[in-house]
């Protein structure tokens, strides 16, 4: 039989509702994750997740979302068989250096598997993806740290930060302060 098109508004309304419901769920999930990382969406052992966030906070001195961290930890669990040992090893190096920032201990991480893993964790937070390939797992788009480094001047594409025709402004010099994030 010949089919007529569906009015997309019905679909759109459903989608909006779905998005709203989904957003509410995600928001609740984020709040729960913020308050208690063990309740995060990822099916990762709570101790492992805590270790992962501990390592992440040693490697990156910015505010890190536990909800995003839970997703990255889940990806790391799938990708790295000896994840617990690697987390422990790098955290031990940092603690031995009494590190308060990544620069205090990163050079002491041995080249090879451990260093590669540390760089993977950093890349995951900054790119929001498990790799630069098409089949990469996406951990986040909006919260990828790359966008935080330019948030004072650039929008995250698809999100507007100015009003109609209101983007004329002086250019920022490179010496302008890095946004706080």
């Amino acid at each position: 039989m010949t089919r007529q098109s569906k009015d997309p508004n019905g679909t759109l309304m459903m989608s909006r509702r779905g998005i709203l419901l989904g957003g509410a769920t995600l928001f609740a999930g984020s709040i729960a994750a913020s308050l208690c990382p063990t309740l995060s969406l990822a099916a990762v052992d709570a101790g492992m997740q805590g270790q992962f966030m501990k390592l992440s906070n040693l490697l990156i001195q910015h505010q890190l979302s536990p909800a995003v961290g839970a997703r990255i930890a889940e990806g790391a669990t799938a990708q790295y068989k000896n994840l617990p040992q690697m987390l422990e090893a790098i955290i031990t190096i940092a603690e031995k250096n009494k590190a308060t920032q990544v620069e205090d201990f990163f050079a002491d991480i041995p080249e090879g598997e451990l260093k590669d893993f540390a760089l993977w964790v950093i890349a995951a937070w900054y790119s929001g993806s498990s790799s630069d390939k098409r089949d990469a797992t996406v951990f986040t788009y909006e919260e990828a740290l790359t966008f935080k480094t330019t948030s004072d001047i650039l929008t995250i594409p698809s999100y507007g930060i100015s009003g109609p025709n209101l983007w004329t402004r002086p250019n920022l010099p490179l010496s302008a302060p890095m946004p706080t994030f």
Binding site: V102, E103, Y126, D132, A144, L154
Partner: peptide
């Protein structure tokens, strides 16, 4: 916006911390 084009190139330089932030920017 250039973030999508430059982020992995910056990451592949092996930079961390403030140096990484500044290189991406």
């Amino acid at each position: 916006a250039r973030n999508r084009f430059v982020t992995f190139a910056a990451l592949k330089k092996g930079l961390v911390g403030k140096a990484l932030d500044e290189e991406i920017r």
